[in-house]
């Protein structure tokens, strides 16, 4: 009974974490593990860049129960740039992204081996403060998920929870009210997220009344408000229409001037448009190629990546 239950939850969790992988992911995964020699053969050359890496990942393996979702992935992510993660459904790119801020801890059956370092500091070790970690590595989800609060409260949520800003009855009584600071913060973040013009007159409205694209930009503003170093985005535009998508893409490029952005996308054109470097995951949770975007798209080293990019599979 309990055994049956476990497998069931594992399946479910896998489905929720990764894109609905389905048949392609499963079957192709088996092929790659079968041809492990090929994997070594077309392993990507190390991507060199100037400066210290913001995030460095080494030999990262992730298992959901028995199933391996990522196979010893290693990559270094430079700061203040956009890194795109592309690949077919079920290739583990979302899993990978969620390892970077340890959101996978939420899934009971997930097991993570290997190392992820933020500015040289290991994230997978005892004593890591998840609060501090997620404060420095923010995340934007696939479908917009604003809180059912006012727009203002959505943006100021993080700083309030972290005690950076206190408003309300008690702080007012104690004379520590930060209302002005909050207003500044809300305006700054909404401007950064290119949403200020649209919502400045209705900051007290429920955020769930915004359109999908606006909601997603609000989520980005909310993420910016805690002043992270890194912003992880999990297919941030997949639930949006083309116009909203274009706005989000512009925004991502702007954000890269100040933040390290890692974005998972399904859409190769999007990756080509917005990213500085691209990592290609293929089924089975394998990082097949990682390099400058132009180079990956125009002259990939791996035959499989070329096939994937030219649309032969995936």
């Amino acid at each position: 009974m309990s055994e049956a239950n476990t497998t069931q939850t594992e399946d479910a969790s896998q489905r929720t974490t990764d894109d609905a992988g389905g048949a392609i992911g499963g079957s192709a995964g088996r092929t790659t593990t079968g041809e492990s020699e090929e994997r070594i053969e077309d392993h990507w050359r190390n991507y060199e860049f100037a400066g210290e890496p913001k995030l460095s990942v080494e030999d990262l393996d992730v298992y959901y129960g028995e199933e391996q979702a990522l196979q010893s992935v290693s990559m270094e992510i430079p700061e203040e740039s956009v890194t795109a993660l592309i690949g077919p459904s079920g290739c583990g790119k979302s899993t990978y992204l969620r390892c970077l801020n340890r959101m996978n801890d939420r899934i009971k059956s997930a097991r993570v081996d290997g190392s992820v370092q933020l500015e040289g500091e290991e994230l997978y070790q005892d004593g890591v403060d998840l609060v501090e970690l997620r404060r420095r590595i923010g995340m934007v989800f696939q479908s917009p998920n604003p809180f059912p609060k006012s727009i203002r409260d959505n943006v100021s949520y993080g700083p309030r929870k972290h005690g950076d800003i206190s408003t309300g009855l008690l702080p007012k009584l104690l004379g520590r009210d930060d209302t002005e600071q909050r207003e500044e913060l809300v305006e700054r973040c909404l401007r950064q997220a290119a949403l200020w013009e649209e919502v400045q007159d209705r900051l007290d409205d429920n955020a769930l009344g915004l359109s999908g694209g606006q909601q997603q930009r609000l989520c980005i503003a909310r993420c910016l408000a805690v002043d992270p170093d890194v912003i992880l985005m999990d297919e941030p535009a997949s639930a949006l229409d083309p116009i909203a998508t274009a706005k989000i893409e512009d925004l991502i490029e702007e954000l890269a001037e100040e933040y390290t952005v890692v974005v998972v996308t399904h859409n190769m054109q999007q990756a080509a448009r917005i990213s500085d470097q691209t990592a290609v995951f293929l089924t089975g949770g394998e990082l097949v190629e990682y390099g400058e975007t132009d180079q990956v798209f125009e002259d990939p080293e791996s035959q499989r990546v070329e096939d994937y990019i030219s649309g032969k599979f995936g």
């Binding site: 959101m103 609060v131 404060r135 923010g138 995340m139 479908s143 929870k161 993420c223």
Partner: peptide, 24 residues
């Protein structure tokens, strides 16, 4: 997804319960 949104910003589970789930 609402809860994940809060957790991903570095709130604790209890803060999420208190400030997102219960108000919602």
């Amino acid at each position: 997804s609402m809860k994940s949104g809060s957790l991903a910003m570095g709130s604790t589970e209890w803060q999420t319960t208190k400030s997102v789930t219960i108000p919602a």
